[in-house]
Structure formats: C-alpha cells, structure tokens
Amino acid sequence: MDVVPGVDPRAPLLEVTDLHVEFRTQYGVAKAVNGANFWLSPGETLAILGESGCGKSVTAQAIMGILESPPGYITKGSIMYRGVDLLGIPEEQRRKVRANRIAMIFQDALSALNPVYTVGFQLAELFRMHRGMSRAEAKRRSIELLDQVKIPGAKDRINDYPHQFSGGMRQRVMIAMALALDPEVLIADEPTTALDVTVQAQIMGLLADLQKQRNMGLILITHDMGVVADVADRISVMYAGKVVEEAPVYDIYARPAHPYTRALLESIPRLDMKGQQLNVIRGLPPALTDVPRGCAFNPRCRYAKDACRQDPAPPAYSVAPHRTARCHFFREVLGE
C-alpha cells in the first residue's frame, strides 16, 4: 500500500535542504530555522544537537508537517522523502505520510497523550483510521505493540488512561504509538528529557533495539551530549537555526571543527576534571528576531575575528568527507 504517489524506493530516505522556517508574531519575525541541511539513511541514527530555541524542534515539526501555521511558515527549502518533496504535495497525502512513513515521539508523554482517552483507544485509533481495521483486530494489534515496547501486563493496561502510567511506561506507550504503522523514519524529540536517569537508559536502549529490528532511520533531537555519544551515528549541531557542524559521532567527540561544538563538549562535567572550574559557554543564544550579523555565534566565540562579524555568514566548509562546519577558522579549531 503506497501512501504517496511518486515514491522511489531507491531514492535517499530523507534529505532536508536549505530549510527556512519563520514565525510571524506581533513582536516581529523570528527566524527559527535558517537553512538547515541534513540527510538520513535507513538504519542510521542522526542526532540533532543544540540548546533550547536553536530550531531543532521546529525542524522536526516542519518535517512532520505539524507546524502551527500561523504563526509558523516554511519560507524556503525542500524536504525530500524517497524522491518526493513533502513540501510540494497536497495536505491529504501529507497527512498519510505522518505515522505511516514518518512518525514522531515527543518529550513529555503525559501532556502529549490525550488525558481523556484510554491508551488502547489512542493506539487502536491508528489501525482503525489508517488501516481500516475492526475494533477487535485493532485492539489485538495494540496489545501486541504494548508487548513489543515491554509494558508488563499489556492485556490489562490497554484500558488504562495515560495518568495511570509511570513516566517511563508512558514514554513506552508513545513509542508504541509512533511505531504502530511501521514507519521508515522516526523522529524523537527529546524523548528522555522528562525521565529519571535510570529510566532514560532503558528508553534509549529500547529505541535502539526497535530501530535495529526495523532498520528505521532515527532522528534524535536532544541537548544531551551524553545520550548522543551512545546511540548516534552522525551528529548535526544546530545553533540559531543553522546546522553549524555535521560529522560522524566519533569525529565530533575526538576533534570538533566548530567553536560551538567544542564549547559544548568542554561544558560536560568529567570525572577526571574534579576540582577544576567547568567551562561554560558565556552569554545566551541570540533572540531569533535579532540574529547577529555574520556568524550567529560570534559574540560568544573565543576564536571570533573581524571576518566573523560581517556578512555573509560562514558557508558550510567541507572539513573532511561527510563532514562540514560553518566556521571560517575551522582549521584553527581542529588544532591543525
């Protein structure tokens, strides 16, 4: 069953090119995403890393097509899924891509689940609406799903409401819901931020297992470098709506090429640094209504020179094969 006409199974799974998203509010235009570029292959995990407000969640919502509009508008760019530009197809087809091909899980499962319907209803709804299954059949499949995400006693818990689950179990329900229709791409927006550390590890482990079983592409949006190191294949670091560095995970941890990435790594507390001052990044990310000229990071950057304060902003320099960084002085940062 094909949900979108024109899908080419040999084309790349997901390719986001030069994506621009802005929010038009009464206080001015906030440029939340300013030319984001990345791609994703089947079975691969791409981590999108950045501080709050850097545009990572907005990027995810743009890919899903659930951006609140107004005030959000996609002004430029393309989102190619298997050779089809999702931004160019009718809403009805776009709707069918959601959950069927590209699914998403959210940060706070308590508010993300509807409080007045049972978990079973919210799961079964997917099968009934997208697959036209009967209630009984949909219920059977929903129980299977809850089993797959390792919720104990799935058969009985199916009639419980979201508030009757613990935080970790609720996030498992969210994952089950996202995986119900076997999507090829899963976007996880801070899936473990609201959870205890021990539960975080369980959820990440579960996600990694399910991804491997299904050969899914996973976009993991997070601000937690610790989570990323364990599971990601590649990392895109976002700052003020731009991907400032993109690299395989090993390279980024070994030798960051952008001052921002480097500063992020240095701000992680480490056991062998006991007694030393932690390097935090000075200042705050810029307001998206007023992004600095040139490189958006220049006011907080210790490598910044005059060239960084002037337009045009640094292009995506090719640092190595499959590795880019938007910094004029990436060689210096790399320590060459």
Binding site: A99, N114, E125, H130
Partner: peptide, 17 residues
C-alpha cells in the same frame, strides 16, 4: 494549543477527527 493535539496531528488523523 495542547500538546496532545500536536500528537493527534502527528498520528496523521484528519483535521475533523
């Protein structure tokens, strides 16, 4: 404006539903 509405949309439900 609630989060669960965003989830419902991400589930590919029709606007009417």
């Amino acid at each position: 404006r609630a989060d669960y509405v965003r989830t419902a949309r991400a589930k590919g439900l029709t606007r009417r539903r």
